[in-house]
Nucleic acid binder design. Structure first.
Lengths: 206, 206, 206, 206
DNA sequence: GCATAAACGAGACGGTACGTCCAGTCTTGTC
DNA sequence: GACAAGACTGGACGTACCGTCTCGTTTATGC
């Protein structure tokens, strides 16, 4: 994952170790939360020496970003028949993910760390943000194919709209779930989706 | 805020200490960020003993919530003449606040901690969330007075809409600024506001 | 004990407090030992404020010296009929006293503290050492009256001998009981007394 | 001393650290005395982390016992030609040792602590008491070889006498020096030795 | 009998050290 | 050369006491 073929001599890195470490990290996050998770504990759970851990990740933040990125990759967007249904589906799945303790505790923590760490910011962007934008792009393409949304020819404008919708959806759900500490239930999702649909169909934003 | 007059005996708590500690906390957040901020360092900056600090706050999280809550209280919403202008104004002010390092680093960190701490969650809600909802309520009332938005008679529905708008605005801006790490500039604000205006004027959500 | 009538106006010091504090000190020594005894704990046990304590004693060492001095004052030397019997009696009584936890733990501790504190050294000497030498002087006078020991006319020599005998008896018993951690039983006392008797009857030392 | 070879894996403990710590402990005792000596200070002087210290010794008392035990091991008993001369010599050397501030302050302090700590009592006995009894045994053997003292065939009796003489000599000197706070000068030593010689030559005690 | 003034209880204060925990590095011997 | 083991330095943790301080309250006198 990190250096797959650096040199050739010496004992090669154990591939199994990577998976064990990331799984152990998620387990530890569930049990202990971000702030009480320690590198020593993770290495012990993974049956690996601390040095092995540090050889592969620079610190707790980097390790956790990789560990939770795998969680976010599990999100998918099957075709529910309409843009509205697609949005409701993805919001509910995302809210479900945020109910998992390892995601709740880790996401905001690494974002906080990243405010003072450029490299970490990049890592979050490439490992989580950019990978999840695929869902917005996919939903948009389907809606366009269905005729629910117009095609946008200007690629730059299209990308800006994708970014906006991504931030609106992800940001609102995260804020509702973690900051306001209110439940993301079906009723709320319906109201939110309605607001978003009207916003998207307004002439300027689509 | 903490108990100013529980009994009557003994030396009273120094009022000056509270202010010094909160200011020192913000200074330390700027210089060190959340994860490197230590209680010992804060007490030293404030010219106060560590015990004094622990006598008043249970830990770093509680202290930081109170310290940043004062920052958020500085947000205001002067009448800009239209709902659209009001929204753009508050979004820009909020984004400005999130550019301050003490707010950036602290906000997500305490939210992360709060995922495993019910009391902290309540403290964030009462010290930050509930206090800032006043801006949404104020903007809405003004818009209703101007005839830009209809009156909602059902109080429960009105409160649910307030909550939704609050989460959409705050959540989207935070996500754009801290997770996606993209600038909240005037162009983006205009696009976001346009989307929101259409959403609000749609029949169901208003 | 300390200044009972320095000036005239103002509330006089509570006499009861002194006794309560010394008793509380001994209780705390029994339960906690020297090193875990704290001024705050003593004040709480005595039902007295910490300030009251510090108004009367400079610190833990001074307080404890006074508290244990009262214990040592309880030692007495009834006439057992012979010098040998008198010595055996006082050694056994002294060993008994050293079996009490408050005496065991406190005596060596204050002596240790006194090695770097001239004032404390004086306090120990006047409150404990000099007061207990009375037992040696008394035993010696009785032995001389019985004709077991010769009279010593030179007062200086007599005082030096008193000091020596005091150090031999007290030192040996303390060392046996506290350093070597061996029991001071009747058999050992008999052997020690025999050695001492021969020493005293030797031509030079008497 | 501590466990040099329990398992085999991992980085071995630094041998140099032990010596540095014990030396630093003695230095700190000289400068600060027992009660102001802190583990943190010792670790800083030894150029060692506090954790390293706690990994090897359970606390201040254990550490100090080991540190002063090395001092006591420096006592020796060259043949001065007669029992009397040997006794005078060892008493003077011992008194000299007790004039060193690190020995004065530490010896009584650890004895005081040991009154509530069985393990510490054992450590003192094995590291200091038992090791110094060799001097008494040696002096006795020489005196017997010279014909100054009779041979004792009963081993148990011999050991009891050794213990008694050890307590008399060590206890008297310690008491004179630390409790009575009087000088151990040549005149006093001569008088004490005379008393002891008569005691030893008396029929019952030898 | 009423002011004066010291002693009192309560408990907050600035400090210091505690003993523990974790970070991240280094040093072994083994694979 | 990667690895498990575990000792290493360094530093923050949160707690416990220290001895001092600042309150409001109590209790003797002496005017």
């Amino acid at each position: 994952m990190r250096n797959p073929s650096p040199g050739r001599t010496g004992r090669p890195r154990s591939a199994a170790a990577d998976a064990a470490i990331l799984a152990a990290t998620r387990d530890a996050l569930v049990e202990l939360g971000w702030s009480k998770l320690t590198m020593g504990d993770v290495s012990a759970r993974a049956g690996v020496a601390k040095t092995t851990l540090y050889r592969r990740w620079a610190g707790k933040s980097e390790l956790v970003v990789d560990a939770v990125a795998e969680l976010f990759d599990s999100l998918e967007l099957p075709d529910r028949g309409s843009l509205e249904a697609d949005i409701e589906y993805v919001v509910l799945r995302f809210a479900e993910l945020l109910r998992r303790p390892e995601a709740r505790t880790a996401l905001m923590a690494v974002v906080s760390e990243s405010t003072r760490d450029e490299a970490l910011r990049d890592r979050i962007r490439s490992a989580i943000v950019d990978r999840q934008k695929r869902l917005v792009v996919l939903g948009r393409e389907r809606a366009q194919a269905r005729g629910e949304l117009p095609y946008e020819e200007d690629e730059f404008l299209a990308s800006r709209t994708t970014d906006l919708i991504f931030d609106v959806i992800a940001g609102t759900v995260v804020h509702r779930a973690l900051v306001s500490s209110e439940p993301v239930d079906e009723l709320w999702v319906a109201t939110f989706t309605a607001l978003l649909m009207h916003g998207l169909r307004g002439p300027a934003a689509a």
